[in-house]
Design a protein around this nucleic acid. Structure first.
Length: 349
DNA sequence: TAGTCGTGGAT
DNA sequence: TATCCAAGACT
C-alpha cells in the first residue's frame, strides 16, 4: 500500500470515534444512520439514531409505523423528506424483500432517499462491496491531497472525484476504507483551519505544499435566498386550538402547523388587524401579536409573527383544519419555528 | 442542470 | 453578525 492508504488507515485505527451504528453490521441500522447523517453532523444526528433504533429495532417495526409518528420522531432534524423516504423504503423492504435488506448496490440505490453516496456507504459497510462512498469529506480530502481544483458541484468534478475514489478503494477493505477517509475528513482535514500541523499526510499533501489548503475544495454555486412572511394564528378555544397539516411540494411537507397566512411582504400590526384570517369568525378577540421572528433555512428566510386569538363561544372549525386538545399538541410533528411559537405561547412542549 | 429541501455548530 | 456547511437526494 502507498503512503496515502497506510497513513490514513493508521490514523483511523487510532482516532476513530466509538459511534453507535458501528457496534454491529446490521444493514438496517447502517442505512438508518446514513439517512440521518445526510447533510447532518454526527453530534446532531446521534440522539436521533438512538431514538429511531429504540422505537424501531427492525425495518419491519419502522414499516408498520404511521408516517405521522415517524415525522414526530424526526422533528427538529430538518430535511423531512428523509424521514418520509425512510419510511416509504422501509415499507418496500418489508413487503417486497420480506424484511431482508437488499444486499446488492443496484437494489440499495433504488430505495427512496438513497443516492449514490448512501448506496455506496451501505454496500461497503454492511456488505463489503467495493463501492467508494464519495461524500463532502472525501471531496475535501482528495481535492486537497491531490490538488484537484475542479469544482466539486460540477458534473465534471463529480465524475473526476468518483473515478479517483474508485481507484483508491480498489483492493482495499471497502467498509473500513470508506469510513477511514470520511472520519479523516470529519476530524482532521476539516473545512476551516484543518489540523495540518499534526496531519499524517503533511509530507505529501499537494494543497499544503502549495498553500492551497484554504482554497480547496472549489465550489462554484452560491445559493440565493428568498424572503417569505408567515403569520401564524393561535385560535384559543379554552382547552383546544386549531392545527393544520402542510401538503404540496413546499417546505415542511406533511408536518403540522398553526393556521397560517402568507404574504409577499411584511405587514404592519395595523395592516395585520385588517387582514384576512385563515379561519373567519365574528367571535374573535386578539390577545396579542408577537414580535417578528427570523427563521433561516438553506434557501429561504422566513419572517414570522404569531397572532394569539381568543375564540368566544362556539366555533365551527372548517375542514381540513383539526381541533386539538392543548395537552395533545406535542404529539404532532411541527417545524422548529412552530415549535418555538407554541413554546412561547405556553403551549406544546 | 439548477433549484430546493432544515437545522445548528463553528468561525 | 454573517457566512459556511455538515456521512446528499430529488425534481
Amino acid at each position: 500500500m502507498d503512503n496515502f492508504h497506510t497513513n490514513i488507515y493508521n490514523w483511523y485505527h487510532i482516532n476513530k470515534r466509538d459511534l453507535p451504528w458501528r457496534k454491529d453490521r446490521d444493514p438496517y441500522k447502517i442505512w438508518l444512520s446514513e439517512i440521518i447523517l445526510q447533510q447532518t453532523r454526527v453530534e446532531q444526528g446521534k440522539n436521533y439514531f438512538y431514538r429511531f433504533a429504540e422505537a424501531y429495532p427492525t425495518v419491519n417495526d419502522l414499516a408498520s409505523a404511521h408516517e405521522d409518528e415517524v415525522l414526530k420522531l424526526w422533528q427538529g432534524l430538518g430535511y423531512y423528506s428523509r424521514a418520509r423516504n425512510l419510511h416509504a423504503s422501509a415499507k418496500i423492504i418489508a413487503l417486497q424483500y420480506n424484511g431482508t435488506f437488499p444486499n446488492d448496490y443496484k437494489n440499495i440505490l433504488a430505495l427512496k432517499g438513497v443516492g449514490p453516496y448512501t448506496a455506496a456507504a451501505i454496500a461497503s459497510i454492511a456488505f463489503d462491496l467495493p463501492f467508494p462512498a464519495v461524500d463532502g469529506n472525501i471531496y475535501r480530502v482528495l481535492s486537497r491531497y491531490y490538488g484537484i481544483e475542479t469544482p466539486i458541484d460540477s458534473s465534471a468534478g463529480k465524475k473526476e472525484f468518483q473515478q479517483l475514489a474508485e481507484e483508491l478503494i480498489r483492493g482495499q477493505n471497502p467498509g473500513m476504507h470508506n469510513q477511514a477517509l470520511m472520519e479523516f475528513g470529519a476530524l482532521q482535514c476539516v473545512p476551516k483551519s484543518p489540523k495540518c500541523e499534526t496531519c499524517p499526510l503533511s509530507d505529501s499533501c499537494f494543497a499544503l505544499k502549495n498553500g492551497l489548503v484554504n482554497q480547496l475544495p472549489v465550489k462554484e454555486k452560491k445559493t440565493k435566498q428568498r424572503h417569505r412572511y408567515f403569520y401564524y394564528y393561535i385560535y384559543d378555544m379554552g382547552d383546544s386550538i386549531l392545527l393544520d397539516k402542510r401538503s404540496g411540494s413546499d417546505i415542511w411537507q406533511n408536518l403540522y402547523q398553526l393556521p397560517l397566512m402568507e404574504y409577499e411582504k411584511a405587514l404592519s400590526d395595523s395592516e395585520l388587524l385588517k387582514a384576512d384570517l385563515p379561519v373567519k369568525s365574528s367571535q374573535l378577540n386578539i390577545k396579542y401579536i408577537s414580535g417578528q421572528k427570523k427563521h433561516v433555512l438553506s434557501h429561504q428566510i422566513i419572517h414570522a409573527k404569531l397572532i394569539y386569538l381568543e375564540v368566544q363561544g362556539n366555533f365551527n372549525n372548517p375542514s381540513p383544519l383539526i381541533r386539538v386538545n392543548k395537552k395533545d399538541i406535542s404529539k404532532f410533528a411541527v417545524s422548529r419555528l412552530v415549535e418555538q411559537f407554541l413554546h412561547e405561547a405556553g403551549l406544546g412542549i
